[in-house]
Design a protein around this nucleic acid. Sequence first.
DNA 1: TATGAATGAGTATTCATTCAT
DNA 2: AATGAATGAATACTCATTCAT
Lengths: 236, 236, 236, 236
Amino acid sequence: MAAKKTSASKGERTRRQLMDAGRAVFRKTGYHNAEIGMICREAGKATGVFYLYFKNKQHLLYNMISEFRAEAPHGWLLHGTDEVSLALDRTEAVRSFWQWYKKYQPDLMALMQAATVDKAFLEEWREVRNRGNAALERAITRLQAQGQCIGLDPSLAASAITGMALFSCYNWLSQKIDFADRPLDEEKAIQTLAHLINGALSSGEGATAGSVRRVKAPPRKKSSSRKSVRATLPGA
Amino acid sequence: MAAKKTSASKGERTRRQLMDAGRAVFRKTGYHNAEIGMICREAGKATGVFYLYFKNKQHLLYNMISEFRAEAPHGWLLHGTDEVSLALDRTEAVRSFWQWYKKYQPDLMALMQAATVDKAFLEEWREVRNRGNAALERAITRLQAQGQCIGLDPSLAASAITGMALFSCYNWLSQKIDFADRPLDEEKAIQTLAHLINGALSSGEGATAGSVRRVKAPPRKKSSSRKSVRATLPGA
Amino acid sequence: MAAKKTSASKGERTRRQLMDAGRAVFRKTGYHNAEIGMICREAGKATGVFYLYFKNKQHLLYNMISEFRAEAPHGWLLHGTDEVSLALDRTEAVRSFWQWYKKYQPDLMALMQAATVDKAFLEEWREVRNRGNAALERAITRLQAQGQCIGLDPSLAASAITGMALFSCYNWLSQKIDFADRPLDEEKAIQTLAHLINGALSSGEGATAGSVRRVKAPPRKKSSSRKSVRATLPGA
Amino acid sequence: MAAKKTSASKGERTRRQLMDAGRAVFRKTGYHNAEIGMICREAGKATGVFYLYFKNKQHLLYNMISEFRAEAPHGWLLHGTDEVSLALDRTEAVRSFWQWYKKYQPDLMALMQAATVDKAFLEEWREVRNRGNAALERAITRLQAQGQCIGLDPSLAASAITGMALFSCYNWLSQKIDFADRPLDEEKAIQTLAHLINGALSSGEGATAGSVRRVKAPPRKKSSSRKSVRATLPGA
DNA sequence: TATGAATGAGTATTCATTCAT
DNA sequence: AATGAATGAATACTCATTCAT
C-alpha cells in the first residue's frame, strides 16, 4: 500500500507536475493564451524549471500528444474491433470514445488549437484523425460488401461520422457551447450519438440525388427473429 | 468639388480593404498568428490606418461576424423552411450550407479560434450555433410528432447533425485535414453528408439504450435469409 | 549652409544613431558586455527601436563591418600600391594604417571579440585579415625577386608584420595595455612601427636555421670576447 | 582507512579536473561562451561541484593564470637571459616562446578575452604583458648602448615585437585565421618570426622620420639604374 | 564531497498601440 | 485620411548560483 521508494525520481515527478499544470492551464485559458509563467505558477514552481524539462510550449504539447496517442489503439467508434456491429456495441463504442475524449480533453483541444497556427501540429492532428478514421472506413467498406449503406464514400463517411462524435464532444464537454443552460445528461448524449450513427450507417439507399421518395425507412417493426444474430459479436 | 461621390467614401473603401485583408490573413495564418501589421501590409496600407477604423483585432472580427450573421437567416441544414423534408431537399439544404460555409470560411474559423481564448467570442459563437440549430431542432420535434426518429433528443440531435456538417466543412475545406492527398470532390462530399443526415433522421427505432436488437434497418431487399449474413463478420 | 531637406529620412538618421550608439557602447564595455538596452539608452531611444533596424546585436556588427570594409581597399601597410617602397613611404603607410585603425577601432575590436565566440564572425575576420595581408604578401614576393629579404615565407611574414601593426594599435590605442602610465606619443609610435618593419624587411640574410654567423651588426664596442656566448645556449 | 593517501586528496584531484575541463571548454567555445555547466559536464561532475572549488568563472580563470605566470620567468623572446644575442639564440628564443604559448594557449586566450570585458583581467593582462616585455626592453636599451638599432624607442619596440610574436601565435595556432587552408609548418613559422625580429633589431639606421633615403639594403644585384624604379610608386 | 533539481534575476525580442508629421 | 517611426509593456528563455539530499 505505502509507496516505498520514491517510485519516480524527483525530476520525473516534477515533469509530471508540469504536464498536469499545463493541462490545467490549457483547459482554463486555451493553448494560445497559456503562458509558461502560468504553467509554472500552477505547478508551484519557479519559471526556470519549465525549461529543465521542455524546450518550450510546443514541446510540452508534443509530449502530451505522444501520451494520448498510445491509448487510442483501435480506431474511433469501433468497439475493440474493425467491425461496425450491433446497436449495443455501437453504444459501447461511442461510450468508450466519449471516455477517451474526456480523459484527453485538454490535450486534444490544445492540439486542435495549435494545429490552427502551426504546420507541424496540423500534421500531427491529421495523423490523429486519420488513424482514428481508418478502421471505421474499413468497416464501412465491409458493410457495403454486405449490401449495406450502399452509395456512401467510405472515406468521407468515416470522416464525417467521427467528426460528428468529436465535434459534439467538443461542443458539449469542452466548449459547453450548446445547452450551456441545462446540465448535460451524458448518458443521453452518448445514446443520441449512437442512435444517429446507427441511422446514418443503416439505410441501404441514401439521399441520392434523384431520390424523390421519402427518405427514411418506414418503421417495419416486427423485425422478427433477429435477436441471436449478433450475440457473439461484441467480444472483440 | 463634384468629385465627392465615389459611391463609397474613401474611408468606407479603406475599411473594406482592411476587412478583406483581415480575412486573407486569417485564412493564411490563423486568427491567433494574425498581426495588425500583416493585415495592413496585406491591405497595402500603413500600420496606423488600422486604428482609424478598428479599435483592435477583436473589433475587426466583431465587424466581420456581424456581416455574416445577417446572411444565415433560416437555420442550418433546412431548405428555406423549418421542415426537414424530402431527400432532394436535404441535398439542397446541405449544398446551401456548404456554400454558406465556403463564403464565410475565414470569418467562421476566426470566430471559432477566437472563442477558444476569449469569453466574449465564445458567447458569440454559442449564439451562432444556437441560431443555426434552433430550426433543425424544431423540425426534428415535428418529425417525431409524425412518428419518425423516435427516441432522439431533438436538441442534442440537432447539435450533433449541424456539428457534423460544420466540422466536415472545416476538415475538408479549411484544414484539409482528411484526404489531403486526393482532391476533394465537392459534389460527392455534399451527397455523403446528405446521405448520412437522411439516415440519421430516418430510423424509427434507434440505438435506444435497452435495444439489443439489430442496429440498422434490415436490408429491405431480399432480406429473406438474412441470419447468416453477419456470420462472417466477427473475425476481423 | 543650412541643410534644406531632411537630407536623410528620419529612419535613416535613427539607424545611424543606433550604430553610433553601438560603437560607443562597444568601446565602453566591449562587444560581449554590450546589451541592446544599453545601446538604445545610449541612443536615447526606446528598446523596441533597435529591432526596427537590426535583427540583433550580430546584425548590427555586420552592418558596421560592411561599412569599414569599403574603406581599406589597398591592403594594409602599403601606401596606395602593392609596393613596399621607400622609408618615407613606409612611415606614411603605417600612418595611414594607424588612422584607419583609429577610425574603425570599435568596429575592429568588436569584430575581433565576436570572432572569439562566433564562427561566422571568425570567418569575417579571416577575410578582413586576408584581404589586408594579400597585397603585402605580393610586395614581399616582389622584393625577393629583387634579392631582398631572401628566405622569408611571404605569406607568414606578411601575416606577422600586419599582425604586429594591428596588435600594437590594439595594445596602444584600444587596450592601453602597455604604457598605461605615460601618454602615448602617436608620432613616435608610428615611426617605431615603420622602423621595425623596415628592418624586418631589409636584411638580405635572415635568421635562417643554419646561420651561425652573427645576425646583425656585430657589436663593435668592447664586447670583444662575446663569441663564446653561445656556450651557455641553455638548453632548450 | 589507510586508503587516504592518493598523493593528492580527492578534492585536489577534482579541482584539477575542473581546471582542465575549463581549459578544454575555453578552447572549444571561447571564454565568453563557456558556461559553468559545460565545464562540469566536461569534467564529468555535477553542476554543484564547481562552487565547491571556485567562486565563479572569473575565479577559475584567476587560478589558471596564477599557474602559468609562474612559468614565464625570464621575459619573452629572450633566451634565458636579458640579452638579445645571436641569430641562433634568437631562433631558440622564439621557439621557446612558441612552446610556452602552445602550453598555455587556452589560459592566455581566456585572459585576453576576459580582459576585453573586465577591468580586473585587463590589469592582469597588462601585468603579464609588461613582465614579458620588460627584459626585452632592457635588452634593446643595451643594444643601443652598443650602437645598434639606434632611434628605436625601447619600450615601444619591445611591445611591438612581443606583440608580433604573440599575435602571430594567436593567429596561426589558436584562431587559425591566416592560412586556414594549408597546414602550418611550425618550424618555418618560428624561423620566420626569428628572421623578422632579427631584421627589426638589426638595422643601424631605421626609418627615422627625416630619412628620405631608401630603407633596405640596396639591391646588391646589378640593380644599376635603379633610381627610376620606384618613381612610379607613390602615386596610386 | 558530491549530486542535480530548483531558483529567479537578467536579457532579448515582439507587437499592439500611439503620435508627430 | 494617411503615414510609418517610436514606444514600452509583456513574455520567452538562459544560466549563474543555491540548496536539500
